[in-house]
Simulated assay, not measured.
Amino acid sequence: MGRKRPRLRRPRGPAEALSASVVALAVLVLAVRTAAATVGALKEAWPFLLALVLLAGTAGGWRVARAAAGRRRDAERLAVLRITLAEFDAMDDRQFEYALRDLLVRDSWPARRVGGGGDQSADVIGDHRHRGRIVLQAKYTRVGAKVTSSVMYAVKGTAGPAHRAADYAVVVTNGTFTRDAMAWGDQHGVHWVDRDNLRRWADTGTALHELLGLSARARRSRFRRAA
């Protein structure tokens, strides 16, 4: 059987009735004082609370406006050039390299194709006024193929010495990367764009520097040879 809930009993006699009345009055006085103190605090703090509300509203409006501006930029880029994964898969090596060059140009990154014999792990080079130099190694593959760590080693070794101190080195494929290749690239500053990221860049409209989080600040090349 469950425990019975305690029940309040009626005061017995004048003394208990008086005591109960005193307690009830004390509780009422405390509640009134608490409410008065709360109202007073709110009156004193209302300028701060109003500023806080306005600040939160401004921050929210800024985020909404920023997101809308980002969508407009993506739409404008897509209006200039949009390439689907199916179109990439139908290309050959040379067409793939030119497509990557065109995507960099679309993203306001002046670029040129330099791939071919003796390209020293660079197929496309872009020079941006604010972001510096980017070197792209294009690895066109049949669907399902994976790029290995050896490609990352080669790009890391030549991005600075052979390509005039590149600021960023990126390996781009229409396939995928091995787990070791991605881990090694992340550790040594070699960016990678796999099939999914390529779709986001070429088909969805995300700019490459946004996709990879490349800074617009001028800085010393990560691949420059040590003095």
Rank of each mutant, 00 (worst) to 15 (best):
S149C: 11
F177Q: 04
A41M: 08
A218V: 12
K156L: 13
R94C: 05
R33A: 12
V64K: 14
L198K: 00
M1Y: 05
R33M: 09
E210F: 02
D102W: 03
A165H: 10
Q120K: 15
A183Y: 01
V23G: 04
L81N: 05
R113I: 09
P6M: 08
G13I: 09
V193E: 01
T206G: 04
A181N: 11
Q95W: 03
A26D: 07
E97P: 10
A183L: 09
W62M: 08
A31E: 07
H191T: 06
G57P: 05
A59R: 14
V39R: 13
R113E: 01
T141K: 15
T34D: 11
F177H: 13
A75H: 08
V135M: 15
D167M: 07
D180K: 15
D119M: 03
H188C: 07
A67L: 12
G116E: 05
D93E: 15
P110V: 00
R225S: 13
Q95E: 13
L25Y: 03
A37H: 09
R179M: 07
Y168I: 06
R142L: 12
T173G: 04
V64T: 14
T38W: 05
R217K: 15
M152E: 04
I125L: 14
R195P: 00
D107E: 10
A138P: 00
D119T: 09
G132C: 04
A75I: 06
Q120L: 12
L214C: 03
A36F: 00
A17R: 10
I125Y: 01
L208S: 13
M182T: 14
R94V: 14
